[in-house]
Computed example of a mutant assay.
Amino acid sequence: MKPLLNVLNKTLVREFYRQHAGAFTVVLLLAGGFMRGQEHHALATYAVHSPLMLGAYFALWLVYTLNVVRFGVKTFRQHPFLQLIRLVPLGVRIRALLAAAGLLLLPVLGYAGYVSVVGWQQEAGRSLAVLVLGLPLLTLLPVLLWEYFLRNPDQTFRFDWPGVIRFNTPYPLFFIRQLLRNEPLTLLLTKAGSLLLLAGLCALYPTDDYDLRLLLLGSLLAAALHSGLLYQFYRFEAVHLSLLRNLPTSTLRRFATYVFILMLLLLPELLLLLRSGPEGVLFSRLLAVWLLLVGLALVLYTLLLARHQPPDRLMPLVGGMVIFYFFLIMYRIPAYGLVDGTFGGGAFLFFQFFPKSEPAFFE
């Protein structure tokens, strides 16, 4: 088992943490720099006494687990020699996959262990039972799905909805339709993480003397979570729609079209803010939070136009942007000042790089 685990550790576990180092850094920065220890304890206490909050925790942990599953399947496909693991005896293979899944789920298991300790201290027997039963199931989920993939490596999954009326798709919906048809899991994971994050912050807002900076930080982190979708958008345009660059359309109209596409992509976040926004926060301020999210997405996309970045090098770029905006928000820059500056920077980068950019070649 040890040689097999060493192979999985080098090809799967280390690569996962390396590619997601920027995201973990952002989460630690926000969780450790903005929230105090008492607030973490209060959230855990609330979770063990509220089935709804505990369910939200499990939903977030499930999203993370599905991302681990997706990364594992992607790694197995990229390195065909890993598919030979299916020739290893079943018991050895399952133990190695289970150990790898445990290493990949350490952030979830560590935080869930903290919540379990709080549940033990609060004598919340039902919540503690749910945690004790649910966490092993979360750990087994990647093992079962990876095992299924190793037994069926050539099987592909398509999501075709019966009875759907077909219509001519307008250009702003090309990418969204492509996501729904070919990358539904990517879209689901991204949107689930972003919406759960904003919903949690909206619920946390009235519990203490917070100001709009809390929601602006949530918008910043939500933009970082969308970096994978933005890279897919860039790749989709480069591979399938490179001819559009030769059409006689003004750069201003192209810019407006791209902003509109990003607004459509981020529309669920706007609806959530309007539906579940904290009481007492004006509509104009909630709109500023969403517009900052759109502006940050625009900046990330235009940075890809300046120079092609492979996916594993995109996260340091995202991390740098998050750290920069974190300090701008914490220094109380007005919300609409941030929005104006972000859209202004995105427009400058777009007009500077789009006419000169050449689509990157992808395998």
Rank of each mutant, 00 (worst) to 15 (best):
E39S: 10
F174H: 15
F58V: 03
P142R: 08
L317Y: 03
G102R: 14
V294N: 00
F326P: 01
L241N: 15
A222T: 09
T257E: 05
A199M: 07
W120I: 03
Y301W: 15
F157D: 00
R332Y: 12
V88L: 05
G163I: 10
L87I: 05
D154V: 02
F324C: 01
L189E: 10
Q122A: 11
L43D: 03
Y210D: 02
A129G: 01
L328H: 14
R253Y: 10
T186K: 13
L105D: 04
E363Q: 11
E358A: 11
T65A: 08
F348L: 04
L272M: 07
E123R: 14
L97I: 07
Y331W: 06
L272T: 11
T302V: 15
P153A: 04
S250G: 04
L5Y: 02
S357A: 15
Y205F: 12
R313G: 08
L267T: 03
L103F: 14
L303I: 02
P107Q: 07
L138K: 07
L221P: 00
G72R: 00
A129L: 12
P80M: 11
L84N: 06
I176H: 09
L141K: 04
F34H: 10
L317M: 08
L216F: 11
A100V: 05
R275A: 13
A223K: 01
G134P: 09
F354R: 03
G163R: 12
Y57K: 07
S194N: 05
G319Y: 13
R126D: 02
V115R: 07
L247S: 06
P3A: 04
P51R: 13
A100C: 11
L131M: 15
L103Q: 05
F167W: 11
T190Y: 06
L8P: 00
R253F: 07
W290R: 09
Q309S: 07
Y205S: 02
P355L: 06
T75R: 14
F236R: 01
G344M: 11
V132P: 00
Y148G: 02
R245K: 14
L252R: 14
G319C: 04
R93Y: 05
V130P: 01
Y331E: 03
L4N: 01
S357R: 15
F362T: 07
P310K: 13
G344T: 13
L328K: 09
L87F: 12
Q155T: 12
A256S: 07
K10R: 12
G337R: 14
T342W: 03
A112I: 03
Y46Q: 06
Q155P: 00
M1S: 07
